[in-house]
Simulated assay, not measured.
Amino acid sequence: MTVFSTNTTCSSSTRNKKFASKEFPNQIKVVAIKITNHTGQTLRYGTNYKIFSGDREADILPVSEVAKHIKESVPTYLLYLFLTEANIPVDEGGTKERIIPIGLFLGPAVTILNMRTAATANKHFRQEMEEYNLLETEIPNGETGYGLVGIQSMDFAPLYMKVLDK
């Protein structure tokens, strides 16, 4: 019998669509869970409660595994270096034309900016997963715990929790 409530939302409904788009190909769902403990005991995942999806236990991944598969690809931004060849022709009247090599600045600048942004986003995602790691959180009786978990599954069966008998 479950004596606490859960609320779940998938990360695809959040503002970061790049991370959400990585969920489907990797068959991983990042789920936010809220647990209000009314069991009379302190809850710790795996010790006295488990999370189920449909009729089977949910395959919850460690943070390192989730962060390894759900991340922005930093090296793909190197393709912006092809902008280095971009030039703007400027007509100086008559048959004279001057070429301004804007790509010498534009290509490396866009590449560095996007690579830094992607690397920072990956770092923040991992930090957030570690900070709200529900697998490592103890939830005392009468309190509410919040956490993020990565679940290896793409079915949409509702999640629920069961208190384990000792």
Rank of each mutant, 00 (worst) to 15 (best):
L81V: 01
H38D: 09
N87K: 12
F82E: 03
K71D: 02
G93L: 12
G142W: 10
N48I: 00
H124D: 05
L79E: 01
I151M: 06
E143W: 02
S64V: 07
R44D: 00
F156I: 06
Q152K: 15
G147S: 06
A109L: 13
L79R: 01
F19D: 04
D165P: 06
I139H: 07
I88Y: 09
L106C: 02
Q127T: 05
D91H: 12
K71Q: 13
C10I: 01
T47N: 07
E136V: 06
A121V: 06
G147W: 09
R126M: 05
K166L: 08
P158F: 09
G107L: 03
L113G: 03
G142V: 03
E85P: 00
Y77G: 04
I28A: 00
K17L: 13
K29H: 13
T42E: 05
E130K: 13
A118T: 09
T39V: 06
K17V: 15
R56L: 02
E143G: 01
F105C: 01
K166V: 04
L83M: 14
Q41P: 01
T9Y: 10
P101N: 01
A121R: 15
R44T: 09
L78D: 00
T111R: 01
H38V: 04
V110N: 11
N114W: 02
I88T: 10
I28D: 04
E97F: 12
E131S: 08
K166R: 11
T117G: 09
H38T: 10
G145S: 10
I51P: 09
T95S: 15
E85Q: 08
F52R: 05
V90D: 00
A118N: 02
E128L: 12
G107V: 00
T8A: 12
V149D: 07
G142I: 03
A119Y: 04
H124Y: 13
V30P: 02
G142F: 11
G150Q: 12
L78C: 12
F156W: 10
R116T: 14
A20L: 02
L164P: 05
E23W: 11
F19T: 05
V63T: 10
A118L: 05
T137P: 01
F52H: 13
N114A: 14
Y45R: 06
I28S: 02
A58W: 03
N48R: 03
I88F: 11
P108W: 14
I88E: 05
E72I: 14
T111I: 01
E92F: 13
N37H: 13
V163M: 13
L78A: 12
S11W: 07
E136G: 05
Y160W: 15
E128W: 13
V110K: 12
